[in-house]
Design a protein around this nucleic acid. Sequence first.
DNA 1: ATCAATATTTAGGTTGTGCTAAATAATTTT
DNA 2: AAAATTATTTAGCACAACCTAAATATTGAT
Lengths: 219, 219
Amino acid sequence: MKLSPSEENYLKAIYHLEQASDTGVTTNALAQRMETKPSSATDMVKRLAEKELLHYVRYRGVTLTNEGTKSALQIIRKHRLWQVFLVEKLHFHWDQVAEIAEQLEHVHSEELIARLERFLGEPDFDPHGEPIPSKDGTIKQTAKKLLAELKKNQGGVCVGVKESSPEFLQYLDKKNITIGTKIKVLGKEFFDGSMVILVGKDQSFISKKTAENLYVQTL
Amino acid sequence: MKLSPSEENYLKAIYHLEQASDTGVTTNALAQRMETKPSSATDMVKRLAEKELLHYVRYRGVTLTNEGTKSALQIIRKHRLWQVFLVEKLHFHWDQVAEIAEQLEHVHSEELIARLERFLGEPDFDPHGEPIPSKDGTIKQTAKKLLAELKKNQGGVCVGVKESSPEFLQYLDKKNITIGTKIKVLGKEFFDGSMVILVGKDQSFISKKTAENLYVQTL
DNA sequence: ATCAATATTTAGGTTGTGCTAAATAATTTT
DNA sequence: AAAATTATTTAGCACAACCTAAATATTGAT
């Protein structure tokens, strides 16, 4: 089914909200996520229900149908593949790619995505460490943990972030932390959860908040 | 100025019609090119005139302003760079890229295009041999001739096509002719303009019609 | 120069996607 | 459980981009 960019964006948003909350998605939450008014969300939700991409019960919110979930995963797949392209091939910084990928993901062509995937070497994860759904909708899960969960002397490789605001990504950059960076916990402060860590060959101090937004794959 | 995909497509069409005819562009011609109704073309033309991208005189047609021409060239630039990407990097065949490039060209990001251009090695021509406008709107001109203009024993390199229908491009493919293919005229039939040519190491017979739609750069 | 044919515009409708304001349902507080 | 608060929907409007049908301007033929 060919969907409009707007319809695709709503599907994506609903999928992510479902993942985050495990319950049905309310109109309000959806409107907030889409930065629009609840009335607009209602309009769209009705149209997507009409297309059987989601179940909608008035005043009760929505859940994606199997079809809807499949569609959402395909859009996320495109988004993440384009992000890999932008970072790996065009050497964008990982905090600059979201906006552009958001446009590229709406280009309609199965063939394009298949070839792009091959060109990129069939990556499993995007530059933020998020898994890239396969063509049939399966997702590889990482054994990723929050850095905050590591104990003293444990180490890991940075595989992604929880919050991906430009500010946070730029802050990480200043600390020389990016996807693939090896990190070891040298010390952990009980009092405020802050850590002293080893990044490459340098020591660095990070707050609890930072440690709670950085995913690592333990070694 | 940020334009909608539709506005961009109209600008592109007007630019091409201007190039082809050297006169102002009529509403009818524009509507035909856009595969829409004249009334729709009128609507759009008014909006573009409002934005000072073209001069519009009722019942008299339009001409692009300097601003409009600049915009059109930027869109053409994007289109052709994406076509290079699709053919060179993703190994699409040159008859499959137009439709996808038409979508990609509407992605808004200066930075993206700058980086794409660098990634592609700053090409001067697209896979159909059409020149790629530079960032400032200048166009490299080829010394290209129609194959039909060559005399016996003259040779050249295929640099593009006049008609770029999938049928014609596929036909050329069957004859092993693509951008960069060396061609030499072995014989030319006065009667019907047909030719016997050397393509690589093999002889090939082509009609006048084919020879009139194939551009070569003479050696 | 007038008339017929053609080109173009205007008027008014449709669809998709947004909005605000008002109405209604659901939830929370008391 | 009723009232107050919050969430959601409905009604009605707006804009971009299309459409058809009718009106008007231009062009070409006589």
